[in-house]
Every structure is written in C-alpha cells, then in structure tokens.
Design a binder for these strands. Sequence first.
DNA 1: TGCTAAACGGAGCGCTACACTCCGTTTATG
DNA 2: CATAAACGGAGTGTAGCGCTCCGTTTAGCA
Lengths: 190, 190
Amino acid sequence: MRADARQNRQRLLDATAELVLEAGGEPTSDAIAERAGLGIGTLYRHFPDRQSLLHAVARHVLERTIADGEAIIATTTTSDEAVRRYMHAAIDHGIGVVNMIHPLLDDADWPDLRARAEAVLTTLIERNRYDRLLREDLSVGDIVFATIRFGRPLAIGLSPAEDREIARRQLDRYLDGLLAATPYREHTAP
Amino acid sequence: MRADARQNRQRLLDATAELVLEAGGEPTSDAIAERAGLGIGTLYRHFPDRQSLLHAVARHVLERTIADGEAIIATTTTSDEAVRRYMHAAIDHGIGVVNMIHPLLDDADWPDLRARAEAVLTTLIERNRYDRLLREDLSVGDIVFATIRFGRPLAIGLSPAEDREIARRQLDRYLDGLLAATPYREHTAP
DNA sequence: TGCTAAACGGAGCGCTACACTCCGTTTATG
DNA sequence: CATAAACGGAGTGTAGCGCTCCGTTTAGCA
C-alpha cells in the first residue's frame, strides 16, 4: 500500500469522526471527502460504501476506548478513580460517534469487542463492591447510559473542543454525585 | 373553529413531540400525520408548512416550562429544591424537542420567551448566592447546558417513557454532585 | 530520470424520499 | 336536512445524495 494512500485513509476516518461530532448525525459522502481535502472517488476506493466507512470509524473509537479501559483497570486501584478515568477516556476518544452511527443498542456487530467491553464494565462494578467508594446501587447500565449521555455532542453549534469541555465538566459533577459520601436524599415526586 | 378541528390540531402537536423524542430528529410530514391518525392534507390545513408545525411544538414546550419555572420560584424557598424542580419540570414537558428542532442556540426567535426564561434562570442563580446550598460557581450556563444534556433523548431505541426514566435518575445524580456539601475534589489531568 | 502501476479528482447519473397540492368524500352543526 | 367546514391520500415535482467512471496525476523503483 502506497504511503499517501494510507495517509488518506486515516484522513477520511478523522474527517468522519469530526463531522459526526460537529453535526450530530451521519455526514454525507461529499461532506466527508471535502473535510478530508480529498475527492469522492478516493473515499470509495478505500471503502466500498458510506456505511463501511462509518462502521470503521465507530469500531476504531470503540477499540481505543476499550483498550484504555483495560489499561486503567490494570493500573488504577480505587473504583471511583477507575470509573472516572474510564469515562473521561471514552469522551476523549469521541465515544459519541458510536452512538450517532449505531443509535440502537443492539450491538450484534462486534461480538469480539462486546465481550471485552463487558469485562471492563463488570470489573469496574465489582471493584466497587469491595471499596464502596461509589454508591452501591451503581450498575453496568448506569455507566453505559451515562457514557452515552455525556459522550453525545450537544449539537448546538459548538466546536467539538468546546463541546468536550462542557461534557467533561458536567461528567465530573455527575461523578461527584455518584460518590458514596454524597449527602444524597431520596427525592419524592415534585 | 369546529370542535373536531381543534382536537386534530392538538393531536398533530402531540404526535410531533412524541416522534421528535423517539427518533431524536425532525420527523417527516407523513410520519406525523400517521402517528396522529390523520391524513397529510389535514396537517397542511392546520399549518402552512412543516417548519411552522415544528416551531409551534417547540414554543409550546418552552412556554409550559417557563411558566412552571415562574411558579416554582414563587413557591419554593431553597435554591437546591428550586433548581431541581425546574429541571425536572423541563424534562417532563419534553424540553428535548426544543433542542432537536432548534439545535443552534441563537434563539433570535421568541424574544418574549427569552426574557422570561432569563429572569427565571438568573433568579435561581441569585437565590443560591444567599443560601449557598449548591456549589457557588454554579452559573446560568450550567443550568442551560445541563437541561439540554438531560432533556435530549438518548436515541437508542428506547420509548420516551423509558428514556425519561433514565434521564430523571441521571439528573438526580448530577444535582447531588452540585450540592455544596459534596466531597468534591479538583480533578487534575488523567 | 524515466517508466508504470497505483492512486486520485470530480462531473454526472440514477434514484429515493420527502414536502406539498388538489379534489372528491365525509362530517359537524344550526 | 342543508351546507359550510373539515378530512383523506394518491399523486407530482424536486432536491439532494450515493456511487460510478474515466481522464489525470503521482509515488516509488531501477
């Protein structure tokens, strides 16, 4: 594979991720090619169709997020820090694109990644069973849904950088609220 | 105006809000009519075009949310409870549709509503200056962005009811993290 | 420095899906 | 029962989008 071809392939992946996070939806083939500074023909020489490209981007993000999660588990001892680092890593890698491209939760795709992702998440939860630094009712679903919520772009015309800044700040508050020591009280109906 | 016409108009508004929250985007005219159990012709007799209908739905949601906010301010004394009730009211009224229909924050539309909304928000913040039940760096922007974040549908194939259930739970954790008494610590780079 | 296979660009084609119209039919209301 | 008001939905025009095709450019090698 020629060097320029490899570089262009990467440009297509990056441009796609950017556009998805900026516009909060699936970009058109033309938009991706333009953002990458390439012709449409080049896009279709690297990927058989638009969906393949989108899938590749989503997979790439997922892979890096899971790899980070595995590393975090191996090096971080306290459950609260591990959860915090994992969720920040997901946002930094642009986990939002996975949700925008595969809005349904039926990830029958990626059976391999799914197993690894489940391992990471259950480890995070089980670790909290011992040190109990976070609320004890914290579940895998809580982490998944929160990761989706904070990873999704707000789609109000912000740049990906501004958007991420807001997301990180909000995520930290959410994690504060997850601490077992938080003066939480059961809220009844308003 | 004939009674059935008025009822059908309301059905169109309700169906639109439902679809926006379910699919996380602007529904087609056909989809709206079908969901409302009406013909497309009826839609266009009540609204000159699709955008007018969408605008009307967004305005309706905003109006009810702001009215609730004004009532909450008049009856709730503590700042943390007032903020909590306001944000839950926004979610319950489906504030997410406003963001899906007007993704950009330049609400040059609704100058009237904007003034009232600003009054509600600044009052909430100013009240916290006195009782300091929430973090003192809490800003109007924090409330706005959080309302958008938690009001937006997750768009992963959940029903609006399930979606709202998750949003409410997550919002309560976020609000817990906003309490001044939370054992928050400054997070440094990972 | 030339040669060639590999890679690129983008005009244009075909098609889908969507907004909106139009008119014959139905229905509320006095 | 009369009639104006309201409805239904097939159909039309179109805009935008995915993808192809082929003439042009370029990387890499001897």
